[in-house]
Design a protein around this nucleic acid. Structure first.
Length: 484
RNA sequence: GGCCCCAUCGUCUAAUGGUUAGGACACCACGCUUUCAAUGUGGGAAUUCGGGUUCGAUUCCCGGUGGGGCUACCA
């Protein structure tokens, strides 16, 4: 049974790159009828952000990536939060020391810094010089007894470390380039490397699917498995998600655009985001692009994951989102829009009744839900400023425009008991369009502008329909005053 | 500086030892049309460079170049 995990650090929101890593892990697990596990890697106390854990889990839930074991779900391999597993790492670190695969180090941070600088200036690999490996066992015992601060370092053996990555194929590193990695910090917390290996083993993870940034430290992890005498999992390193400058997407460089929550807030649909993310570094066998999560599960295959980094294209994401909005049922879209409508009504001090009809005419225009804010000015604001300039069509003139508005007004006054419906309205106005009197443009442009105050808007009759007769009459009258 | 990874249209990518190098986004044009969208049709746009191997390489190998990542008692 395959077991994979997503292991975020609680240092903020769910990162977009992390979301893709989680997605690929999820797809791999579901595809292979395996388990998808969430583990929280909170071994850095300084970077810990309170509340972050909940927000990351919420982000994953929003995306629809459900997990089988995790901090909020009891599993037989818990706890799933590393800060609750501290004794474990300490035990294993000391076990490694006993085996001779690791050693105590008492060196000061300041000395290590100087050492690094020296090595770099001499064009050497930067790594620990093993000063503390010279210490005699008695010496070590004495310093420990004295309560001196220490770390435990991996003793990297000589040789080469070779492994086969599921995405990249064979990777080979000479151990002489590997640093004697700190495994246990002086505060008693493990580093990522130790905690990660211990937990992946204990939690019986079979496939480690993670970001490319871990590729260089994988040999160290393999060395750890070897030192413990454990069977290592398979590794698959995913290409990075890049910004438009081809650098790894990061909070520092890219701001809140890296948080999944930002997309949720702006009205991207989770289905669109997962679809987009899935295709960022992976491709199905055919040319299809629209995939539900279930369909992705069916098609996903690690063999078809890309090696090179992929630029996060907002344009393409927006296209996906528009596609998914178009596919939504009216009721569903209207519900999703409710919070946005409410906020708008609040700012304009307006009460809103049913928004169904409004939603319908906006559906094909929305790219993200937030667009509703700009697309509904004509609906929520009725006292917009009109000018003759905008009311008169490019190919029209003042007199014709005046009479168009007048005729439209009269038509609605005499509308009688005809149905107030889009097609009915269209038919009624069509009668006014005659060669020698009005072209459609000469008639409909002024009417539409009178009703919306905007050069660009939905169809006149759709607008008239949602506005209602009273409001239309009022606006037509107002427009005529502008031309008077 | 050292180590590792990567390289097809602007972007995401497909494909092959012999193809008119395919699709999607974006862009442009045209159609529809009262405007804007949506939609339909069409168009421009790519195998990083240099060596090999081969009858033939964009595809395989080597090198350059370029890009990225790592180089912490961060993950």
């Amino acid at each position: 049974m395959f077991r994979v995990r997503f292991a975020p650090s609680p240092t903020g929101e769910l990162h977009i790159g992390g979301a893709r890593t989680a997605l690929y892990n999820y797809l791999f697990a579901r595809k292979n009828k395996g388990k998808f596990i969430i583990r929280i890697e909170d071994t850095d106390q300084e970077r810990f952000v309170p509340g972050s854990l909940d927000r990351i889990l919420q982000g994953l839930k929003w995306l629809g990536l459900e997990w089988d074991e995790g901090p909020d779900i009891k599993g037989e391999f818990g706890p799933y939060i590393q800060s609750e597993r501290l004794e474990l790492y300490q035990k294993y670190a000391h076990e490694l020391v006993d085996k001779g695969s690791a050693y105590y180090c008492f060196c000061e941070l300041s000395r290590l810094e100087i050492l690094r600088e020296l090595q770099q200036s001499q064009k050497q690999p930067t790594k620990y010089d093993r000063e503390c490996l010279k210490l005699t066992p008695d010496n070590v015992k004495e310093r420990l007894a004295r309560g001196e601060k220490f770390v435990i370092r991996l003793k990297v053996p000589e040789g080469k470390t070779i492994f086969t990555d599921k995405v990249r194929g064979e990777v080979c590193v000479d151990n002489s380039n590997l640093d004697d990695q700190v495994l246990l910090k002086s505060d008693g917390f493990p580093t990522y490397h130790l905690a990660n290996v211990v937990d992946d083993h204990l939690m019986q993870i079979t496939h480690v699917i993670r970001g490319e940034e871990w590729l260089p430290s994988t040999p160290k992890h393999l060395l750890l498995y070897e030192a413990f005498g454990w069977q290592p999992p398979e590794f698959a390193h995913l290409p990075n998600v890049l910004n438009d400058k081809r650098a790894k997407l990061s909070k520092r460089k890219d701001g809140e655009a890296v948080w999944v929550q930002t997309y949720e807030r702006d009205g991207f649909l989770p289905e669109a985001l997962t679809n987009f993310l899935a295709l960022l570094g992976w491709h199905p066998q055919d040319d299809r692009e629209i995939f539900s999560l279930e369909e992705l599960v069916k098609e996903f295959d690690l063999d078809r994951v890309q090696k090179g980094g992929a630029i996060f294209s907002m344009q393409k994401l927006r296209w996906f989102n528009a596609e998914y909005i178009k596919k939504l049922t009216l009721v569903k879209l209207d519900n999703l829009l409710k919070p946005f409508y409410k906020a708008l009504a609040q700012t304009t001090g307006q009460k809103i009744g049913t928004t169904r009809a409004l939603t319908q005419i906006l559906q094909s225009r929305l790219i993200i839900l937030k667009d509703i804010n700009e697309f509904t000015h004509w609906y929520f604001v009725s006292d917009f400023k009109l000018t003759a300039d905008i009311l008169i069509p490019k190919a029209g003139n003042l007199a014709k425009t005046k009479s168009a508005l007048q005729l439209a007004y009269e038509l609605l006054i005499d509308y009688g008991d005809k149905k107030w419906e889009v097609e009915e309205l269209r038919n009624a106005f069509e009668v006014l369009v005659r060669p020698g009197t009005f072209t459609r443009g000469e008639l409909l442009w002024p009417v539409r502008v009178a009703l919306t105050g905007e050069r660009q808007s939905p169809d006149v009759f759709e607008v008239a329909f949602v506005l209602g007769r009273e409001e239309c009459l009022k606006r037509l009258l107002d427009a005529q005053k502008v031309l008077a």
